[in-house]
């Protein structure tokens, strides 16, 4: 069924070099509409670089990234994407409300719609009671959730999340994943990077990355079956040549 859907992301022969260091080597990948796609790999594998290119913040040295069938980077496409970086990237000296208002305005939301969206996203991340607190008084987990709330403000068709659950306790992580599933049910395509193996199991499909290369792509089940292993971690070891 999934194969009939539109390809929302098409990464074609993407290379990225920083000086002499090759960070991405010939990446080819299709991500379909409505998928939760996980990029799994150790730090330094090139996950962040790849998702930054998808978010329009960087360009490949060669090759191209097509999103919704058009070439990135493009300001028009960026309106349809929500990006959450590894760093929380919040204005700590402002209140959560002021942060939300600021980013909402950047996406062109105004007036009643803006206010309604702000209370909606704060409900999703379960922070409604902390709207007027200064972000500097937030805990690490609250900042992560506020960061996610901001990425959801403009109801993007696609969410690109770079390590969204780092440093978040298991209970909270579960509730955040429920939020992802809810969004996904309503049609949002989600691309997520992680280095946590059990989190990877929650994705529809996975791309395993190591040293700038995409070493395997498939559903968690398929990856395990193909390597005749019982866990994603063991599958990763097989694909990694260990």
């Amino acid at each position: 069924m999934m194969s009939n859907r539109m390809s929302w992301i098409s990464i074609q022969h993407v290379y990225k070099q920083f000086g002499k260091q090759e960070v991405l080597k010939d990446i080819n990948l299709e991500i379909k509409e409505g998928e939760i796609f996980g990029l799994l790999g150790p730090s330094g594998a090139g996950k962040s670089t790849l998702v930054k290119e998808l978010a329009g913040l960087d360009v490949p040295t060669s090759g191209e990234n097509l999103i919704f069938g058009e070439k990135m980077p493009s300001l028009k496409l960026m309106k349809r994407i929500g990006y959450m970086a590894q760093a929380d990237a919040l204005y700590e000296d402002l209140s959560a409300n002021e942060n939300l208002h600021f980013f909402a305005s950047l996406y062109g939301l105004k007036g009643k719609i803006k206010k309604a969206r702000i209370s909606e996203v704060m409900q999703i991340v379960d922070l409604s009671g902390h709207l007027n607190k200064l972000v500097s008084n937030y805990s690490g987990g609250m900042k992560r959730r506020l960061s996610l709330a901001i990425a959801l403000l403009h109801e993007p068709e696609m969410l690109i999340l770079d390590e969204p659950t780092v440093g978040i306790d298991p209970v909270l992580r579960k509730s955040i994943w429920e939020a992802f599933y809810n969004l996904n049910r309503n049609g949002t395509t989600i691309i997520i990077t992680t280095h946590v193996m059990d989190e990877a199991e929650k994705c529809d499909r996975l791309g395993l990355m190591r040293d700038g290369e995409l070493i395997a792509v498939g559903t968690p089940e398929a990856l395990k079956n193909e390597t005749k292993t019982g866990s994603i971690e063991q599958a990763f070891l097989v694909y990694g040549g260990a």
Binding site: A55, G56, L57, L75, K76, M78, K79, I81, Y83, A85, Q86, A87, D88, A89, L90, Y91, E92, F103, L106, Y107, G108, I150
Partner: peptide
């Protein structure tokens, strides 16, 4: 350094 510039640049701001 706080990453907000990157976040800003991931929005359609010119």
């Amino acid at each position: 350094t706080t990453g907000t510039l990157e976040r800003l640049l991931s929005t359609p701001i010119r």
